[in-house]
Design a protein around this nucleic acid. Structure first.
Lengths: 229, 229
DNA sequence: TATATTTTTATAACGTGATATAGTTTCCGC
DNA sequence: GCGGAAACTATATCACGTTATAAAAATATA
């Protein structure tokens, strides 16, 4: 199936990905230079550029390599769609909580101005479909307002999620508050799009996340209002 | 009041800020190196580092320098607090729309992993106070749910806003859609925190922003769902 | 096996943000 | 005015991401 040439290429690619993963684990952000990476992978400095194109692309490949997707959500069957949504988000974040140093390095590079191709590598159609399905389910169950565009709602949820990741990366959110911060964003936006029935399910969640954030690590002193002009 | 030494320092600082502004305007992102900046400001390479600390800090200072604040909102008197909020956000964004190239360069540097001190330079207490006042006003008018923590709500709104800016910077949002994207995020989160009365005011806004986004430039093909694992 | 093609290697180079050092100018307090 | 501190200048340097170049190695094709 695969020519010997392509096989060797894949093998090199994999070696680079593994080396990157190990380097991040061992040295954190600082130790991950392209020169160190090439040396660790037993490869010339030019090779990662040939095979991936840039440092960011390498890290994206690491992110891709790490995650399995989609087969973990089969068992949410009996929950209502909105709870499924929040549960899925919770699960997503739990991965970051388990290995914060590692994921923070990855997200740092990934969030920094990325090109379209690279973004699509993370936020791909498969994942899009998963979330849209949940939102459509909620809509069909009458939990969202009539006329809500689930694609646009998803986009808003997504912005909120990535923003929380960004602020975690830059140190404005503690890892203990990741769940609650992301959850509050989700719950607020969902409740904002919800029908009366949906809101009944979400109101309690809003306050629960709010409590979690208040009781968590003391809120930072620094203001968080965006500027106005 | 000001010693001659400090005056000269301020003058140099200002010269650097102006030089940065001009360089961005003339050459865009690319031409703005510290060496070019120093040369343009008639100053040594070391001086911007002495006076500001880093390149990002210089750009933050440019952002600071550019905007006046607070005296533009006196005339919103008769609007209800929620409309005031949305109006203020609208005004904020209008500045970016007027000079997108310029502001994009600034935000690119600002959003990239910033330190706490630098963040506080943008999101300072004065602005925080402005927004909190609006939210508290809304709360006092019974437009928000009983028990909503306006500080946490503001933080959520803020995350949403910055996320929209981030996605504009990386090219995922067109400038024509900035208003609607930010507005939808605000309207959803606010409606999610609103009382029945407040929701009555916001439901229409949600759909208005939704329409604007649908009718604007064709939605990008790229997915926007966050990954889950 | 011999030739052609692709890919990697080794190495140098460029421009970047940032820091360090030594010398020079500027200004404040006395 | 003069001594000393503070700031800036000039310059060298560092590590970084990235690109370019030529040579060597690996593989495909005949």
């Amino acid at each position: 199936m695969e020519s010997k040439r392509e096989a060797a290429k894949s093998e090199r690619r994999q070696r680079i990905i593994v080396a990157a993963r190990e380097l991040i684990r061992e040295t954190g952000d600082a130790g991950l230079s392209m020169r160190a990476l090439a040396a660790r992978a037993g490869v010339s400095l030019a090779t990662p550029y040939n095979l991936f194109g840039s440092k960011r692309a390498v890290l994206l490949a690491v992110l891709e390599d790490i995650k399995g997707f989609g087969h973990r959500f089969a068992s949410y069957g009996t929950l209502n769609p909105l709870d499924k949504l929040l549960r899925a988000a919770e699960l997503a974040i739990s991965y970051y909580e388990k290995d914060p140093v590692f994921y923070r390095v990855l997200w740092t590079s990934v969030l920094a101005a990325a090109g379209a191709e690279e973004r699509d590598a993370i936020f791909n159609p498969k994942r899009q479909a998963f979330w849209i399905r949940l939102l459509d389910e909620a809509s069909a169950a009458g939990l969202l307002m009539e006329g809500i565009d689930t694609n646009l709602l998803l986009r808003s949820l997504d912005y909120s999620f990535r923003s929380v990741m960004l602020h975690w990366v830059i140190g404005e959110i503690e890892v203990e508050n990741l769940q609650a911060a992301a959850g509050l964003g989700y719950a607020l936006a969902l409740r904002g799009a919800a029908s009366a029935e949906g809101q009944a399910l979400l109101t309690e969640r809003v306050f629960a996340f709010q409590r979690a954030l208040s009781e968590g690590t003391a809120p930072k002193k620094g203001a968080v209002a965006e500027e106005v002009s």
